[in-house]
Nucleic acid binder design. Structure first.
Lengths: 210, 210
DNA sequence: ACCTGAACACCGTTCAAGT
DNA sequence: ACCTGAACACCGTTCAAGT
């Protein structure tokens, strides 16, 4: 009764990828998992490309209607960014697929409108708003894309100590750089810097700059 | 006289990847290009993994000794970041390889020391310096990693206009978001925000905060 | 020391054939 | 409408064999 519908195939694929990673995924492996001939997958969802495209669509769905908590526009923008990031980190493998299929720009879309509304409340509009909006989006998505790869890389190789001369004065810095990167802290630092210029903004009293 | 040394194999591989992309690269294709049997490549440089590792090493070499122009520490930090970014964009395909092999953290290393020196001039040391340093590095590398994928993606698909209701008040914003992203501008905006907190810093008069 | 061809174990995908 | 097995054109890699 493993009714081999398109939807249940996608579920199995997502599960397999989540467990073994994208690079370990094969059509034949998926077919085995489903107890089905490979070719039957082609009938239901199409080839690997179509299957991955559908997975990205799923991720896009999860990104829609994210909550924006906070009592001020700036706080809501930061909240939105953090919530988007959380989903992307939770769905690392789907994010990796979106990346390698050149679909990362689509990840902008789901929260674009909400972000724009919050910026409008701050009086940020037009090309200014577009720039800020994209800067935030690139920060969220690109740092998530890289974190995934970076964290996996950190498990294998030891630090290269030869790059630091032993007489470098700031021992605390050297020690900090030798311990693994806290990507959450790095992300928050960057996000805070990005929204800082928005903090001393008038409410929509007009559009005066300077 | 195409002396098939390890070095000339790497040159050919880099050229092929630069021209046709990473995903189009095959061992057999490289062998054809060199007018040689596939197996001979294995003797000189090893398998595909070893070959890609060497390419990343090359990229690391290019990242060493980047110039840091500017009359103040903050300007030199920004200059360093921009120069690193330029190399990464120029070597997009090698960056993509480094990314998919989980080697992006290694790209931090070549300019880490120079960056630390400039931060020290500003009185930023210890764990503070480590955080700022990593925030800058993540900004440079991750945005470059993503830009590559995003720009290629933008060529295929048209914008999805259904997401913007026609009565959205800010027409200028909608128009700006429909035109392709200017990643240079987005990068500069982010970099500027990241170094902004460093601008109102004392010279190494001490370590007083607040 | 260097290069080769044959062979192996994998891929994704197509297609004619079944029910 | 749904599922199958066989077959094709590719991969990366190993290894015994040549010179």
């Amino acid at each position: 009764m493993t009714s081999t519908s398109a939807e249940s195939i996608m579920d199995a694929a997502a599960h397999l990828i989540e467990r073994d990673g994208v690079e370990a995924f094969t059509m034949r492996g998926l077919a085995d998992r489903l107890g089905v001939a490979v070719t039957s997958i082609y009938w239901h969802v199409g080839g690997k490309d179509a299957l991955f495209d559908r997975l990205v669509e799923r991720l896009l769905g999860e990104l829609a209607n994210l909550p924006a908590d906070g009592s001020s526009p700036v706080e809501r923008i930061a909240s939105l960014a953090r919530n988007q990031r959380r989903v992307l980190i939770d769905r690392q493998h789907l994010l990796a697929i979106a990346h390698e299929r050149d679909r990362t720009p689509m990840l902008f879309l789901p929260i674009q409108q909400t972000l724009a509304a919050q910026l409008a409340e701050l009086g940020v509009t037009g090309t200014d708003a577009a720039l800020v909006l994209r800067a935030i989006q690139v920060h969220v998505i690109s740092s998530a894309v890289m974190q995934f790869s970076a964290v996996r890389g950190a498990k294998h190789d030891e630090e290269d100590p030869s790059l630091w001369t032993d007489d470098w004065p700031d021992r605390e810095l050297v020690r900090a750089l030798q311990s693994p990167t806290d990507y959450d802290a790095v992300f928050d630092y960057g996000l805070d810097a990005l929204v800082a210029p928005l903090r001393d903004r008038r409410q929509p009293s007009g559009s005066s700059e300077y």
